[in-house]
């Protein structure tokens, strides 16, 4: 058994809005290389916050987060180098609207990885072909549909050759008929052995692709296990209640 690529130990996160809110309460979890972990839970359960802590978009207030052997909560760590290895896909795509699709994919490759323009564009075209929108390389993001934008966003993260991919509700802002095309890309990635942590409400995806499902509520991981077990024999009362609401 190889060492976990993500090792989270007892992290806590508080929000002050302005009254104190404990978003994460001593959460611990590990993810092995090549594992696909799906996090589900009701809104406000802290699942997005947990995901955003993994590449320090939110700075956890206590605990340790060790990504590929580096504690990212250590102020002296080079967070930019870590983030280059951890791709992130957002609910709202967050493509750069002033750049073309191709430039969206090449920008970080050139500035962070120091690749030449030619190299970066070749890599970008390969990935655009992979996600099925190579013909739109010259378009601006707002000329694309939601599903196409999200696939560009996935390709943009993949262009950095990340070791881990984080997905923050990648299909929640999409029209129902576009959800499938994005999930297909994610399934392909999972099959290829990418380490993925996915926050989603797509139970079908979780059941089909996940190696492990985490259920979070009120800032804590209440239950986890392989999908076969998780969806058929939940142990915790809250899990049962949640599953009965959505299934």
């Amino acid at each position: 058994m190889s060492a976990p690529i993500i090792d989270v130990r007892n992290i806590e996160k508080y929000f002050y809005t302005p009254e104190e809110l404990k978003a994460l309460n001593r959460v611990s979890c590990t993810v092995d290389p090549g594992e696909v972990v799906v996090i589900i839970g009701p809104s406000g359960s802290g699942k997005s916050t947990f995901l955003r802590c993994l590449n320090r978009l939110e700075y956890a207030d206590a605990g340790e987060i060790i990504i590929d052997g580096v504690n990212i909560l250590d102020p002296k760590c080079n967070i930019n180098a870590i983030r280059a290895e951890v791709g992130m896909v957002f609910q709202s795509f967050n493509l750069f609207p002033h750049k073309t699709v191709l430039e969206n994919l090449t920008m970080a490759q050139m500035t962070v990885r120091g690749r030449s323009k030619k190299e970066a564009e070749d890599k970008a075209m390969v990935l655009l072909k992979k996600v099925g929108i190579a013909d739109k390389f010259a378009a601006k993001p707002d000329q694309l549909s939601g599903g196409q934008q999200q696939r560009v966003a996935i390709a943009r993260s993949l262009a950095m050759n990340p070791k881990i991919m984080l997905f923050d509700e990648p299909t929640s802002a999409l029209d129902p008929e576009m959800v499938g095309e994005v999930l297909d890309v994610m399934k392909t990635l999972a099959r290829e052995g990418m380490t993925m942590v996915v926050v989603t409400h797509e139970m079908g995806f979780a059941r089909e692709v996940a190696d492990r499902v985490l259920f979070m509520d009120k800032g804590e991981i209440l239950e986890q296990g392989p999908p076969s077990h998780f969806f058929t024999n939940p142990v915790h009362e809250r899990t049962k209640e949640f599953l009965s609401q959505i299934l």
Partner: peptide, 12 residues
Amino acid sequence: GQMEAARSLGMN
């Protein structure tokens, strides 16, 4: 989200 996207790609 624009800043978050740029930073999550590893840009400083």
